[in-house]
């Protein structure tokens, strides 16, 4: 006996479905996580001195005859746009799904990180704009010198409130990753009760690593370790 396809609603598409949009969010989230990690490792060259960091910046601008950075930017922009699109539409759908809330509500399994994912995401979006204006475009920088990345970082972080913004944003990123990294495995179905603990631990550890690594830069400048 063969079985015919079950009737499917005409407007049911992968990308329109909740599961499909979550998959989009998880895959783009994974791309962004990969970027965040490589970006931090690259920036560690701040500790090697001006030549190393500025040389690295030249490499980024010239690899693949200068096409590399544009390919990279296109991928990042696509990932961010898709990620924010999926997050926004899913969030609005979820809010609409409970027009009337409870008078009493006692969370049990959800975490601070999971409950702040959405507003953390909005903070990250704002931070990404600020970060680009600060170190890439330079318009939000007090003394921007094209090509002298080392100077731009040091002079930029000597402004205490700029450093404060970075530190706060990295804490937001850490919370986002703490839930997001675990969540992405679950969303993609890459899960098994036996490995759940380890995936959770990995997410905690990775988030902590990113936060500590990245906030070390403004702190090193503010304390004069890097001048």
């Amino acid at each position: 006996m063969t079985v015919s396809a079950l009737a499917l609603r005409a407007n049911a598409t992968f990308i329109g479905s909740t599961v499909g949009r979550k998959v989009v969010m998880a895959v783009t989230g994974a791309i962004l996580i990969g970027f965040v990690f490589v970006h931090m490792i690259g920036n560690m060259q701040l500790y090697l001195g001006p030549e190393a960091l500025n040389h690295y910046a030249v490499f980024l601008r010239t690899f693949l005859h200068g096409a590399g950075i544009w390919i990279f930017r296109a991928v990042m922009l696509t990932a961010v746009v898709l990620h924010v699109w999926a997050a926004t539409t899913l969030t609005l759908d979820s809010w609409a799904a409970r027009p009337q809330g409870y008078r009493l509500w006692e969370p049990k399994e959800s975490t601070y990180a999971s409950r702040t994912l959405r507003w953390g995401g909005v903070l990250l979006a704002l931070f990404i704009v600020y970060h680009l204006l600060h170190f890439t475009v330079g318009s939000a920088h007090p003394d921007f010198r094209e090509g002298d990345v080392y100077h731009n970082v040091v002079a930029g972080f000597q402004v205490w409130y700029a450093s404060a913004i970075y530190i706060a944003a990295m804490i937001a990123l850490g919370l986002h990753l703490d839930h997001g990294l675990w969540s992405l495995f679950q969303t993609l179905g890459l899960q098994h009760p036996r490995y759940k603990r380890y995936i959770r631990l990995f997410a905690h550890g990775f988030a902590l690593l990113i936060v500590l690594g990245n906030i070390s830069f403004p702190i090193a400048v503010l304390t004069g370790v890097v001048k």
């Binding site: 609603r9 909740t18 609409a96 959800s110 999971s114 675990w182």
Partner: peptide, 20 residues
């Protein structure tokens, strides 16, 4: 596919892995 489509059509929200 059919059950997820129906779930979406019923205007439920979508999972963010809170585990509640």
């Amino acid at each position: 596919r059919a059950m997820v489509a129906q779930m979406d059509a019923e205007a439920f929200g979508s999972c963010t892995n809170h585990e509640e």
